[in-house]
Structures are given as C-alpha cells and as structure tokens.
Design a protein around this nucleic acid. Structure first.
Lengths: 344, 344
DNA sequence: GCAAAACCTCAAAGCGCTTTGACCGATGCC
DNA sequence: GGCATCGGTCAAAGCGCTTTGAGGTTTTGC
C-alpha cells in the first residue's frame, strides 16, 4: 500500500493525503480525519526510502566506533551509551547507524557517510588529544557531537563530557583526607583525552598538598580486569607500597580487589580503592550499598544527552557550538578507609 | 556532484555512466576507464538514498536489541557480537541499523522496519523459549537470522548458535571426573533459551552418573558479578557446601571468585569453578594462561557468521533454512582441581 | 452584488539513481 | 549486396514520496 493507492482509494490526490498525514495546516480537518483513519485501516506506512530521497534528509544518525585493530578491544561503555542515545533516536523517528571501523579508516568513513547521504549527523566516540576527526568533520560540514573532548583542537565544536579532571581531583583529595600519601593511579590509555584529564586531576590534587606525583605509582593501561590486577600487584610489591588506588574503571577496580585479597589484605581496611564508575547496566557497583567508593557518572545518560544535542544541531545548523559538562558524583562505598597507622 | 553532472562532464548519458561504474558488461572498456577516472577525480559518490529508492533495496540490516525495561540491563555480549557482524556488513557495503526497543514493542518494530523498507533483513537477539518474534518475522516475510535458538518454535528458521547443552554437559562431566559431587549451577535467566539448554546439559551429565540434581545448588539469575557472588555465598554457606561451580558467564565467575576468596578459600584448590567464556574483548579470561577453566566460544565470531548468513538469505530468498551450530572448546585454567579429600 | 480574501485541493515537477527497450553503426556471413 | 548479429550508447520511464504553484470554490467585507 503506497501513497498513490491510498489516495485513489480515498478519491483524493497524493498531495492532499501526504499533507493530511504530515500535519500540514492547509487541509480540512474533516478530510484529515478521513485520511488518517484510512491510513490506519489499510496499514499504510510511508516508504522511508522515498521520503529520504524526496526530502534530502536521511533521518538517520551515525555512530562511528573506532576499533583499535591491535588490541581489538571494544569499549565496554559503548553498549550503554548506545542504549541511551538509541532511546532518543527512536523517540524522534531517527535511525541509528553503527559503523565499526579500524582507526585509520575513520576519516574515510565520515566522508562516505556524508557524501552518500547516509546520515544527517554523527556522534564521535573516544576522542584522542588533538583528534583529527574534529577538523575533518568541520571541513565536511557534517553535524556532529563528540562524546568527550579533545585537547588541542583549535576549533570549537559540540560536545558532551564528564568533568574527568574534577572527578579525579576530588577522589584524590578524598584519599588524601583519609591520610593516604602513596596513592596509585591506574589510568586508562593516555592516548584517550579523558585519561589525560584524569591524570591532571590526580596530580593537581597531589601538588596542591605539596606532594610530588610518583611515576612508579602511575600506570596507563587498557581498562581490563587483568590490567588492574597486574598494576596492583606491582604497586603492592614495592618497598613502600601504595596504600590506595584510583582506578579509571570498574573492571580495573575488580582486578585491584583480586590482587588485594590475594595477598590476604582487606579492601577498605588495609588498602583503599576508588574507581570511576560509568554506571554500566551489566556492571553495577553493588546494589543498595556500593562495593567501591566511586566517582559516578552514567554513560547511558551521556548517550541520551549527546543524542539530543545532535538532533538539535541537525535541525538547527546555525546554532553556536553546544557544550554540556557533567559532574560526577562521589559516592561512598566499602572500599575506602583511613590509612593504616604507620603507613601514612 | 551527482550522476547527471558527471555524465554531462563526460559527454555521456547517465545510463552509460551508471553502467560503467556498476560493472555492467555492455559498456566499452575504454569508456569505463574514462568514467571511473573521472568519478575518482571529481570525488563522485552515488547518493545512497537514490540508489535505495531506485533499486527497492535498503542495503541495510537491522539489529533489534530487546531492552528489558525492568532490569534495564544491556546484554554485555552485544557489543562484541556487533563488532563481528559490523565487519561483515561494511565489507559488503551494508549499513547496520540498531534499534533498542522495550520488549513489548519488538514486534511493532519489525513491522515498521519491514513496511517502511528500512532494512533488508534483521538479526534476532536473545531468543526466549517459544519466542513469538520468529512467527512474526516469518509472517512478515522479512529475512532474519536468530542468534541462538528458540525451543518450541514450530517453524524452521535460520540460526547461528553455540551448542550450549553440550558445553555444559562436558563441563559438568569434567568436574565429575575430578571427583566433585556437589556442583552448583549459576545459570543465566531461564527465560532465555540458551539458559534452559545449559541447565539440561548440566542435569544430563549428572543423571548419566546416577546423581540427582539438587535444587538448592541451582540458581538462575542475571549474569552480573554481584549475582555470582551472592549465589556463591549461599552455596558455600550450606551444610554440605558446593565444591564446584558452573557459571554461565565470566562476570558471575568473578563474583564466585570473590566469595571464595572472601572466605579464605583458594579457587582451584578448595573450590573449582568453570565458566562459560564468550571471549569478550574487554573481558578476557586471563592472557596466556586462562584464569578460569572455561567452555569458550567467541561471540564475535558468532556475529560474523550470523551476518554472513543473513546477507546470504537476503540475496537468495529461496534458500532453505540455514543452521550453524558451533561447538565450545573446553579450555583448562587455574580454577579447577580435584575435589578436596573428604569432600567427595 | 461583487471583488478580495480565505480555504481546499490538485497536477506536475523533482529528488538521483536504475533499468528497459530502442537505436545505430560496425561487423560477419552467405 | 543484403540480412542478421553484435557492441555500444542513449532517451525515457520509474522508484514513492514532497513541494511548488496554480486553480476552483466558498466566505468575507463593503
């Protein structure tokens, strides 16, 4: 059943039927009712392909997920981000198109999405410092929103980000207040912009108290359990072992916990741990009582906000660059406590 | 730059240019070269919207991810599955469209995708027993491939699945061979078809050795760390505690490990644990030496296979239903060992 | 009572491709 | 030389919508 057939059935022209269904004012309300009823009765659904060609809009949004071909790691936060943004898209009649492409093909992918007219805009994931994608997209004129920010980009752009610096600063201060002085940072890969910001927050907090960040206590690794475990093993084996850990992710935190407990120590008593908690649906930080003390910010919510922002800039191309900075909340769990006596 | 402009520039008709670029034989090779060169030079890319309308094909595939609105849990395996299938799509010039919809809207979503002509086929995720989606899709005539199977479906359909029954049977036998008699099963939610199959494999192995499955040792919970921990806590607190655990997922296994170590026990010596390992990229089971003994099957590979199957049935609609049953491999880790003496 | 305004409705063009059927010159064959 | 064949090219129709500009009818205002 297409528009023409429906129009014939109603004894109207396609024009009128189209207008009636799309809510244009220049059609008689009585006629509109008739049309809508008939459309429902005959199960009419306008062909998306035709609409797209006729309007020149794609009614689709692209998420280009970079796949690091060396590590082959899919970012675990990605599925929750998608869940959040997908909700917004479907509510607004947009499709979400996913492209998973090797790092080096990303620019080409954007060019393609743009010039073939597959999407009306894109979300940029996992920005690096000095990320070249931002310039590429600006040049292309394809509307986009970055999840995160890229230090060093000369141009201004739309982004949704968590205040990573501040979150790690606060977490560090919290540990310092508990008397900890040897605080290990298990960071994500510092090619990622957010990881750099987190490190800055950490060092800022230390230096503000007159402490020198110690290289031996800082690692930058992919955010997996095993990496967390390994880093903790090292930090605990040293002469003056770390008394506290700051982890970039829940998974790393779980690895730290394993290392701590494997040594017969107790988390929260012998060793304190704070994680950054993305509030992933399948990786909850405990239930009523949080396991880990954490700085928390929902990545799903970030997905929602980024999607809303993108739809906004798609429909209003002349808007100035939009920004949204989210603050992570510091939630108290069972993994932190005062530094053991004699260890400060 | 569109086809018409390019044709004018070349002094050819759009027909010829289109044919030259699409590899049709009825165009002179010399002409073809000229056209291809000009297309490259002018950065011509055919408009996807126009191709779709003209050909009546969408060159797109849908993944409909059910979102359980109560638990709001995104299946963590989903991102790796997507990574696998996405690769296949982009290699074949297809787009991947993701819809994340509440359970109850799924049928409507399929109908929509079909009648609006948004996709040429879909992948069905997380089938339940007696899943109604299969009938719906058959009725619609929309090509589809199920990741998993649905017991109770009267019709035949395309699927890619792991032999879950056999995997759990083998794992159970392995534990039995080590002398374990009180083997706890921490299963996924048994609304999911795969979970039912896993339980059957487990009970089959037990009864084959004359053992009665004990209800107190079997739980069916969402596959999170906390749930694994809680289940293990219970199973270990009983009068005759479990000496071994069979877990449906890595996360549950990590929860079990926490419970075991929290009691001062050692995994692999005091308590044995086998997990099902989906080989998720961000949740690797150790590196060179596996942490957990596991039945392993890569969900990313399953994604690849399902995508290939879908593209096949899309292009050849008259094919009989395709099936692909993958066998999980049993890999030996550090989490299993003979039952402690006096505990058999 | 009549022109102007307001209200509905429609025919037709267009979005940028693919594809059918026709055309035409060159070649081959008897 | 004439007929069939073939290779290369094109004009035009269509895919199923939206949207422009025009037209016809009714209402309004004086």
């Amino acid at each position: 059943m297409n528009l023409k057939e429906l129009a014939t059935k109603l004894g109207l022209s396609p024009t009128t039927v189209s207008r009636a269904l799309n809510g244009y004012p220049e059609v008689n309300e009585v006629t509109r009712e008739r049309v809508i009823a008939a459309a429902r009765r005959h199960n009419y659904r306008p062909n998306a392909r035709a609409i797209r060609l006729a309007t020149g809009r794609s009614l689709a949004v692209g998420h280009v997920i970079p796949l690091d071909t060396r590590s082959e790691i899919m970012n675990p936060i990605f599925s929750d981000f998608i869940a959040g943004s997908g909700e917004v898209y479907s509510r607004n009649g947009y499709d979400m198109i996913l492209s998973i492409v090797p790092d080096e093909q990303e620019a080409a992918t954007y060019r393609d999405l743009m010039s073939r007219g597959t999407v009306d805009g894109v979300i940029v994931h996992a920005p690096k410092t000095n990320d070249t994608r931002i310039g590429t997209l600006k040049d292309l004129g394809l509307p986009f929103v970055v999840h995160g920010r890229s230090t060093g980009s000369e141009v201004d752009y739309n982004w949704v980000d968590v205040n990573n610096r501040r979150a790690f600063q606060r977490a560090t201060e919290f540990l310092l207040d508990l008397g900890h002085r040897r605080i290990a940072l298990i960071n994500g890969l510092e090619a990622m912009d957010f990881a750099v910001r987190r490190r800055i927050g950490y060092t800022d907090a230390l230096t503000a108290r007159g402490l020198e960040p110690e290289a031996r206590l800082i690692v930058s690794v992919e955010m997996t359990e095993v990496n967390g475990w390994r880093a903790a093993e090292q930090a605990l084996a040293q002469q003056a072992p770390a008394t506290a850990f700051l982890c970039a992710s829940m998974l790393q935190g779980m690895g730290v916990r394993r290392a701590v407990e494997g040594r017969g120590l107790k988390m929260g008593r012998d060793v304190s741990v704070i994680i950054f908690d993305d509030d992933l649906s399948y990786l909850r930080n405990g239930e009523d009582v949080p396991i880990f003390t954490a700085t928390r910010s929902s990545v799903k919510e970030a997905g929602r906000l980024a999607a809303e922002m993108l739809l906004m800039v798609v429909s209003q191309p002349d808007l100035p660059p939009q920004h949204r900075l989210l603050e992570a909340e510091l939630i108290l769990g069972q993994s932190t406590g005062p530094v053991p006596v004699g260890d400060s």
